[in-house]
Design a protein around this nucleic acid. Structure first.
Lengths: 227, 227
DNA sequence: TTTTATAAATGTATTTTTTACACTTCCAAA
DNA sequence: TTTGGAAGTGTAAAAAATACATTTATAAAA
C-alpha cells in the first residue's frame, strides 16, 4: 500500500446541528458569521479538529464553546468531502447533531451572534450546511422512534402534551392524543409525579419524568423502545 | 473562528467493508497485509484520501483496486478518529460498505492476498476494523429491511430460496418460507422469468429478477420497500 | 416404465398491532 | 355557581404479522 509520508493531509472539521425544542417547535441553533469566509451569512457552528482530540471530543468542545453546555447528547452523522465545499481550502467536515433542552440558563456565547431558528424557517446557509441539516433531521426522526432521545430535548419534568408536541415536531405530523398516550404508557418507562403543570389549563396536567434506570433495566432484559 | 492557516491537517483514509454472498453465507473480503504497519495480519482494504477526490471516490477507487469492479453499491458509514487507532501516525478513517455479487469473473488483485471470510468466522483484525465491521453489519441489517439492496449481492437471476437464504444470512435468523415468499410477492417488484434453476432440485425452481424500473416507478408513486 | 426421493410451490386461520374515534372530568376565573 | 377549555380515559375495527401442512414436479433409481 501507500507510504504514510507520501500522503497528503487534509483539513478536518466538525459541524454541529444543534436541536432544541421551545415547548412548541423544533429549533436549530445557527450562528451569524462575522468572520471569513462567508462573513455575514448564517451557518452551523463548527470548528477544526485538533491533533489531541477525537471527532467526538471536537464536536463536544465546539458545542460547549457556543452554549456553555456539557453532557449533551450528541451523535456523529457523516463526513462531507466534496472538493470545493469550502472555498478557502479543501476541508472535510464531519457532522454531529446535538439535542439540548433550552432553558433560561442557556447562555449563548455572544461572539457568535447565534440564534434559534424554527426548523422549517432556517435561512440560507453556507457550504453544504443545508444538506447536513436534512441528514440530521432524517436521522433524528428515525432515532426518535427507536431510542428514548426525545427526553433530551425536554426539561426533566414534562407533560404528556409537551411530549406529544415534541414528537409531532420531530415527525412532522399530527398524532392522535389517545393513541400516543396509550403507546407511551405501554412502554412503561415514565414516572408520573404528583405535580401538575398549571400553566396550560385550569385543570392542570400531571408532570412525568423519564425513568432512565427502569429503561436501562428493561433494555438489558430484552426490551426495545419503539414508538 | 479559527484561521485556516493555523490549523493542523490530518491524514484521512477510507476503509471498505466488502460484503459478498456465496449462495449460502454472507462473506467479507479481507486482505493479508504484506506491508507495514501490522504486516502479516488481516485487515479491511483501505487507502488514503487523495487531494483531488471525494471520500466516495476514494472508496470506489480502493474497491476497484482490489476487485477490478465498477458500479458497485457503496455507502458511507462513519468516521473513526481515536487518537491512536493507527500506531504509525494519526489517521482518521471513514468506513464504507460495499455489496458485491461474487462471480467466477471476480478476479482479486493478487498484490493483496485477499480472501473471503464467512462473516461469523472473520479473523482477528488490525486497528478498529472489527468495530467497523460490526457497524457495517448493523447498517446492512437495517438497510436490507428498508431498501432493495439485497439484490446487489445476488446474480441478476436468482431463486426465491437464494433470496431467502440471503436475508437469513443478513438478519442472522431463520425465516418462514411461505411468509417470506408472500411478503416478497406482495411487494410486486420482482419479475418471474420462465427459466428454472435445475441445480438445486429435480423439480427445479423458477428464477426471478429484480425489476428496478418497476420499483422506481412505485417509489415515486409513494411506495416504500419494507420487508 | 414405474417408483422413489427431494425440494418447490402454495393459502388460510389466528394472533398481534395499529388505527379511528367521543365523552367526562377537573378547576380557575368570571 | 356557572362557564370555558384543556386533561384524561377505553374500545371496536382494520391491518399486519405469524404459525402452520399438503400437493406438485421432476430426475434418478429400480
Amino acid at each position: 500500500m501507500d507510504n504514510y509520508n507520501d500522503q497528503v493531509k487534509t483539513l478536518l472539521a466538525v459541524d454541529c446541528i444543534i436541536f432544541g425544542f421551545d415547548k412548541k417547535h423544533l429549533k436549530i441553533l445557527l450562528i451569524k458569521r462575522d468572520f471569513e469566509p462567508e462573513r455575514g451569512r448564517w451557518s452551523l457552528m463548527g470548528g477544526f479538529l485538533q491533533p489531541e482530540e477525537t471527532l467526538d471530543e471536537a464536536a463536544t468542545r465546539v458545542l460547549n464553546h457556543l452554549t456553555g453546555l456539557d453532557n449533551v447528547y450528541m451523535e456523529q452523522l457523516r463526513a462531507y468531502s466534496a472538493i470545493d465545499r469550502d472555498p478557502v481550502e479543501r476541508t472535510v467536515s464531519v457532522s454531529y447533531y446535538a439535542l439540548i433542552n433550552i432553558t433560561e440558563e442557556t447562555k449563548l456565547n455572544d461572539n457568535f451572534s447565534a440564534k434559534w431558528f424554527d426548523i422549517n424557517e432556517a435561512p440560507d446557509l453556507i457550504f453544504d450546511h443545508t444538506n447536513m441539516i436534512s441528514h440530521a433531521m432524517s436521522r433524528l426522526r428515525h432515532r426518535a422512534g427507536t431510542k428514548p432521545i426525545g427526553f433530551e430535548l425536554l426539561p426533566e419534568k414534562f407533560t404528556m402534551k409537551q411530549l406529544q408536541t415534541l414528537y409531532e415536531a420531530i415527525l412532522g405530523e399530527k398524532l392522535d392524543k389517545r393513541n400516543f398516550i396509550n403507546k407511551i404508557n405501554g412502554l412503561d418507562i415514565l414516572l408520573k409525579t404528583d405535580e401538575k403543570d398549571m400553566k396550560s389549563s385550569r385543570k392542570g396536567s400531571f408532570l412525568y419524568m423519564f425513568d432512565e434506570v427502569k429503561y436501562n433495566a428493561k433494555v438489558s432484559d430484552g426490551f426495545t423502545f419503539k414508538l
